[in-house]
Structures are given as C-alpha cells and as structure tokens.
C-alpha cells in the first residue's frame, strides 16, 4: 500500500484506488511524511510538460530515440 503514495501525489490512480489510498493516508504516518516530501515533484514535472519543447512531435525525453 505504501508505494501508492507516488501515484497518489501524481494523481494517476483510478478514482476508487485514489480514495482507498486517502483512507490509508489517514492512519499511515510513513505515507504522510512521504507525501510532504514528494508534494513539489508534480509541479517540477509540469515544467517539462509546459516547456516549449515538450510537444508531441518533440518529446524532451529519450522514448522516441
């Protein structure tokens, strides 16, 4: 269950799993601490999404190479 914290903070869980993880978070201090640590990461990844080079024909990462 604990490894769900990354998927939770990124918002990539299905709705039922998202809600289940939130209930887990209510009682899990380890995940609470990790949520605080990871909460800025999505915005940092957004920099990549919003950057002018981050279009579909020119992905900034190595996938298409």
């Amino acid at each position: 269950m604990h490894d769900g914290v990354a998927a939770y903070v990124l918002g990539v869980l299905d709705e039922d799993e998202h809600e289940a993880f939130e209930r887990h978070l209510d009682t899990c201090e380890r995940c609470q601490a990790e949520l605080i640590e990871l909460v800025e990461l999505p915005e940092q990844l957004d920099e990549l999404k919003n950057a002018p080079s981050a279009s579909d024909d020119d992905p900034p990462m190595s996938m298409s190479r």
């Binding site: 990844l45 920099e47 990549l48 919003n50 080079s53 900034p60």
Partner: peptide, 19 residues
C-alpha cells in the same frame, strides 16, 4: 497552455534540469 506560460527562459531552464 504553452502560450500562457510566463517567464520563458527561467522555466526553460528548470525544464532542462528536470529533463
């Protein structure tokens, strides 16, 4: 989305670091 992004150069820099 892309046109509305402010501070182009600064954001491009952080985008590079993240990439």
């Amino acid at each position: 989305d892309m046109m509305a992004v402010p501070d182009g150069s600064e954001r491009a820099l952080s985008a590079m670091i993240v990439a």
